[in-house]
């Protein structure tokens, strides 16, 4: 595999983790977020700064990023608890702009220069090669999928689904809204922090521009495109929308525009996404299998 393919694969791998993490907040708990890139950025900065300012090794930086992002997710989740739908969309968008502005204007975070010279993780005494890095990313994808699959089968996951369906009926059924929304925010943010750490140490240079609102739209597009609320949808969405700009280089500059337009069209004609229940793909796959079984 050439270095180019490996780089693309690692990038898509990081998007897969981001899509899975956003799906927990928006797909399972039903809390729309237009600011997920903020948590991606917080994880990247936490990891990158611990590595560059204190010289901590990657295997300390990564859990640090996960914990910091989880905590910030809980704190920033507080203003999100009392608002719904359009107001929640605006609040999360606002969070994205504020976090990005903090990275950009607070000198502690490197300002416009961002954080550079983030070291490549070492493994067994030597710097990790790109293929090794890809293996590590895949390992963390498997962990994310495992956490996700566990969540779906747990009472906590059922509680999130009930909140998504009807908050009033959920709390009258014994589900504490605040507690479980915070669970979703923390879990989803922490996982985005993991993706951020992987991104920072792969790119070795990060700046506020990487974590803006357009990036949030890209992540959300992947989730919606693949099938919001499903286990595999976000993964499929991240792969397809991650590969697409590589195949059609000219759209790279217009990515947000194209994805945004796609979101609108999808919402109108196929809101379940590619693999959601009742999507045209799921229906046809089911039909094929039914035929074979017959």
């Amino acid at each position: 595999m050439s270095a180019y393919y490996i780089t693309v694969a690692i990038t898509i791998g990081i998007y897969i983790i981001l899509a899975i993490s956003l799906n927990i907040i928006t797909g399972y708990a039903g809390q729309i977020s237009l600011g997920h890139a903020a948590f991606f950025g917080i994880g990247a900065y936490a990891s990158g700064m611990l590595a560059t300012k204190l010289g901590a090794p990657f295997f300390l930086c990564l859990p640090f990023a996960v914990v910091v992002t989880g905590i910030v997710g809980a704190i920033l989740g507080i203003p999100c608890l009392r608002v719904k739908e359009d107001f929640l969309a605006i609040t999360t968008m606002g969070i994205n702009f504020v976090v990005q502005a903090v990275f950009l204007y607070v000198p502690f975070f490197g300002g416009a220069l961002g954080i550079s010279n983030i070291p490549v993780p070492s493994f067994g005494g030597a710097e990790m090669t790109k293929p090794m890095y890809l293996v590590m990313v895949i390992f963390f994808i498997l962990i994310a999928v495992a956490v996700d699959g566990w969540l779906r089968r747990s009472w906590a996951g059922l509680a999130l689904a009930s909140i998504r369906e009807d908050e009033t009926a959920a709390e009258m059924s014994g589900v504490n809204l605040t507690r479980f929304k915070v669970v979703a925010f923390v879990l989803g943010s922490a996982m985005a922090g993991l993706a951020g750490s992987l991104y920072a140490h792969f790119m070795s240079f990060i700046s506020a521009a990487d974590f803006g609102f357009p990036e949030s739209i890209v992540i959300l597009s992947m989730v919606v495109f693949g099938g919001i609320g499903t286990l595999w949808g976000p993964i499929i969405g991240a792969i397809i929308l991650g590969v697409a700009p590589e195949l059609f280089r000219p759209i790279l500059d217009y990515r947000t525009l194209v994805y945004g337009a796609m979101l609108v069209v999808l919402m109108r004609f196929q809101p379940q996404g590619l693999v959601g229940i009742d999507s045209f793909i799921t229906r046809n796959v089911k039909r094929i299998f039914a035929k074979e079984a017959a």
Binding site: W150, R153, W155, A156, G157, A159, R179
Partner: peptide
């Protein structure tokens, strides 16, 4: 079935270990 399961879980929504256990 899931509608009823949500409320059957009422005693599982308070502790960490209880809420991470399988509902089915």
């Amino acid at each position: 079935e899931e509608n009823v399961l949500v409320a059957l879980g009422v005693s599982h929504y308070t502790g960490f270990w209880k809420s991470v256990s399988r509902y089915r």
